[in-house]
Amino acid sequence: MKSVVIVGAGIAGIEAAAKLTKSGVKVFLVEKEKEIGGHLRQWDRLFPTQENAQKVLEDIIDGLDNRAEVLKNVTVQHVEKKGDKFEITLTNNRSLTTDAVLMATGFDTFNARRKEEYGYGIYDNVITSTELEEMFKTERVLCTNGKAPERVAFVHCVGSRDAKVGNRYCSKVCCVTAVKQASEVKQLYPEAEVYNFYMDLRMFDRKFEDMYHEAQTSCGVQFVRGRLSEAAETKDGRLQIKAEDTLLGKPLKLTVDMLVLMTGMEPCSSGVALAKKLKIEQGSDRFFNGQNAYNLRNFTSTQGLFLAGTCTGPKTIPETLADARAAAAEVLSYLTK
């Protein structure tokens, strides 16, 4: 029986494991956290149709049908290719020998503290998009004083399109997530004023433009084209923020009760460390390069070593799942050649 190690049990790793095990491949699914599911576990509802995130995750995990050997709370300590085989040692000292390795190491969310001027971790009511999503899950979107926010601002591109933090690329999903979350805040608090500060609105996929239209019309979200220069706390714990309204050509300021930072994606740091051991090529954005950016994205220059999901760049959920299935198909054809 051919075997494969999949590093990372986010949705890419799980989906690939489901497809490979269904075809009779032995899969070891290695996850550094104590639960599988990755970032999706923190999410409440998903763009573009407000689907329940946990239901979607359950469905993806159900696809596994317990066929893979899931190893949680462990990481790959050592990996080496010997002949056609990969010899792997895990942090729990277990050794595995497999025919292929699939990297599904995904992304880390940008650490918003690095944008010092926005005061995350300093000012009380500055939160990240992930934290807002967790608030949606508990249905308690409140300021630290326990009150409902009357004014909320969303800042797009936090840690993305920003050479100052070393990330020149677009994280792709934050724009539409901000539109989704802004609309949800308005649905929760119809009287609240909600502002989105964007540089470009990248509504690239199906239904996204409709979401933007609805946000602006039915929900009454205000969109300001301009990047926030700074946030500062007022005496009553609110936040004074500044930006240029670049379409108006004027500086603009306002005070809000809650500031939501749309943190972008960075390649997972432990995934990058492992990739370096495996000599996987990285782009200038530090995401992994496949053999090319078109038909060979899931292949590396090492035979039997494959890539899936957001380790090759920011992706939406359907893109990640499609990429995982594509990678599984390539792994399978490699193993059965």
């Binding site: 503290r113 010092e116 005061g119 995350y120 971790g121 300093i122 000012y123 009380d124 706390e233 714990g237």
Partner: peptide
């Protein structure tokens, strides 16, 4: 205001 956030930056 969370002082420990500033201390981390300091």
């Amino acid at each position: 205001m969370k002082k420990e956030g500033k201390e981390q930056i300091w």
